[in-house]
């Protein structure tokens, strides 16, 4: 005979097996200890858990990079594509089965360099994909080359005399591309990430989460934990994310204010 406790335990067991409460996969992330991506992982997992979306109904799509490894560390369905192509693949997944919740994840090289041409188009098509852009301003996986968001003067082995190109601002680009939901976040604030994701998932179109993060291994100068913690701060109290003009102004004058920058009125 089954005791109520036993029934409950069975149910919990079942639910756990289904992965509903623990999106973390059995394999531990292979990221370097201290990598900012752990914070993002936590933020996204908490969002999935708290919304209770069945893991079988989620597809996490990625390209290549340290960030691109993400699907292996999640119990959702995963589609680990090639460098730069997470967004087109995510488009296909979402249109192929609109019942699925689709996340796309990837680094700044993946999303702003090789795959940079896809961002405007998924935004203008307003495909219901939630895109987490892990912006550490460095190529992590290939061991520390400058990325499109590296500040001028970035010195790496590939740029020993410092870079001379101006960095891209992904939040500003997303606004300009007409993304219907734009948030700027920080890997050191998983709670903030979770909150923004919960809000962004509700947006029936394309949502981009531009997440400042750190590469502890290859960036000792710019987006370090210390710097990011010092530089980032909340958006102004009276900030209205439905005002696109204001959003542009905010992003133009402040690189480090965090929160939901823009959401299109329903």
């Amino acid at each position: 005979m089954k005791t109520p406790a036993r029934v409950l335990a069975d149910q919990v067991n079942q639910i756990q097996k289904s992965g509903r409460f623990s999106p973390r996969s059995a394999s531990l992330p292979t990221w370097c200890p201290g990598c900012g991506y752990f914070g993002i992982h936590q933020g996204l997992n908490d969002c999935i858990s708290s919304l209770g979306i069945p893991l079988t109904q989620i597809v996490t799509v990625s390209g290549i990079g340290c960030a691109g490894r993400y699907p292996f560390f999640s119990k959702t369905y995963g589609l680990h594509t090639v460098h730069g192509r997470a967004l087109p693949a995510a488009t296909g997944v979402k249109l192929g089965n609109p019942n699925l919740t689709v996340f796309a994840v990837g680094g700044d090289g993946d999303g702003l360099a090789i795959g940079g041409g896809h961002l405007p188009h998924i935004a203008r098509r307003n495909i219901d994909v939630n895109y987490l852009l892990f912006d550490n301003s460095i190529y992590g996986l290939t061991k520390g080359q400058p990325s499109p968001s590296s500040p001028m003067g970035t010195k790496t082995k590939a740029s020993p005399y410092g870079t001379i190109d101006k960095p891209l601002n992904a939040t500003l680009m997303a606004l300009a591309y007409g993304a219907s939901f734009v948030a700027r976040l920080f890997a050191g604030d998983p709670k903030g990430i979770t909150e923004a994701l919960i809000e962004g998932i509700r947006n029936p179109g394309f949502s981009i989460f531009h997440i400042y993060t750190t590469c502890v291994t290859f960036d000792k100068n710019f987006k370090t934990w210390a710097h990011l913690k010092k530089w980032t701060h909340a958006l102004p109290q009276d900030y209205d994310p439905t005002d696109l003009g204001r959003a542009f102004n905010e992003v133009l004058k402040d690189d480090f204010s965090l929160g939901v920058i823009f959401k299109r009125d329903a």
């Binding site: 597809v59 296909g92 192929g96």
Partner: peptide
């Protein structure tokens, strides 16, 4: 990319 995504789905 999208073709692969949709067949995947």
């Amino acid at each position: 990319g999208a073709v692969l995504g949709s067949f995947y789905a």
